[in-house]
Simulated assay, not measured.
Amino acid sequence: MAKPDIVLKKVVAKAQRDLRFNVRHSADSDGLLAIGTMADKKDNLSYYLTATATRNSSRPTAYSSQRSG
């Protein structure tokens, strides 16, 4: 049976919070990205959480047709 990997890191010294937004716009698509992180320590427990949310949309490409004749 495989043993789980254990990752040891430094304990969080103080509460940390971070929220970042990224907006993207181009001729054929738009996008929004939000990343949030939170770290804190309570008694002997130290934790670090990260959340990511994205939204992408694309616009239909306009095609032109030409008839030869």
Score class of each variant (00 low, 15 high):
1 M>W: 12
1 M>N: 10
2 A>H: 09
2 A>C: 07
3 K>T: 13
5 D>T: 15
6 I>E: 10
6 I>W: 07
8 L>P: 01
8 L>A: 09
10 K>Q: 13
12 V>L: 04
14 K>Y: 06
14 K>I: 01
14 K>C: 03
14 K>G: 02
14 K>D: 11
15 A>G: 04
15 A>C: 06
16 Q>E: 15
17 R>L: 03
17 R>I: 03
18 D>C: 10
18 D>M: 08
18 D>W: 07
19 L>R: 10
19 L>Y: 09
20 R>T: 09
20 R>D: 08
21 F>W: 12
21 F>R: 03
22 N>H: 14
22 N>C: 07
23 V>S: 05
23 V>Y: 12
23 V>I: 14
23 V>M: 10
23 V>D: 04
23 V>C: 07
24 R>W: 00
24 R>Q: 13
25 H>Q: 11
25 H>D: 10
25 H>V: 10
26 S>K: 05
26 S>H: 02
27 A>N: 12
27 A>Y: 09
27 A>H: 09
27 A>S: 13
28 D>A: 07
28 D>E: 05
29 S>Q: 11
29 S>I: 00
29 S>V: 00
29 S>K: 13
29 S>A: 10
29 S>L: 04
30 D>E: 13
30 D>R: 04
31 G>A: 11
31 G>W: 01
31 G>R: 04
32 L>V: 09
32 L>Q: 03
34 A>W: 02
34 A>T: 06
35 I>V: 15
35 I>M: 03
36 G>Q: 08
36 G>N: 02
37 T>Q: 10
37 T>P: 01
37 T>W: 00
38 M>G: 12
38 M>N: 13
39 A>M: 03
40 D>F: 07
40 D>S: 06
40 D>I: 00
40 D>K: 04
40 D>P: 00
41 K>C: 08
44 N>W: 05
45 L>S: 05
45 L>C: 05
45 L>V: 15
46 S>V: 01
46 S>A: 08
46 S>E: 03
47 Y>C: 01
47 Y>D: 01
49 L>N: 12
49 L>W: 03
50 T>Y: 03
50 T>N: 06
51 A>Q: 06
51 A>V: 13
52 T>P: 00
53 A>D: 06
53 A>W: 05
54 T>Y: 02
54 T>S: 15
54 T>F: 00
54 T>E: 13
56 N>L: 10
57 S>L: 07
57 S>E: 14
58 S>V: 07
58 S>A: 14
59 R>G: 02
60 P>W: 00
60 P>M: 03
61 T>M: 07
61 T>Y: 02
62 A>D: 10
62 A>Y: 06
64 S>P: 00
64 S>M: 12
65 S>W: 11
65 S>D: 09
65 S>G: 06
67 R>I: 13
67 R>N: 12
68 S>P: 05
69 G>V: 07
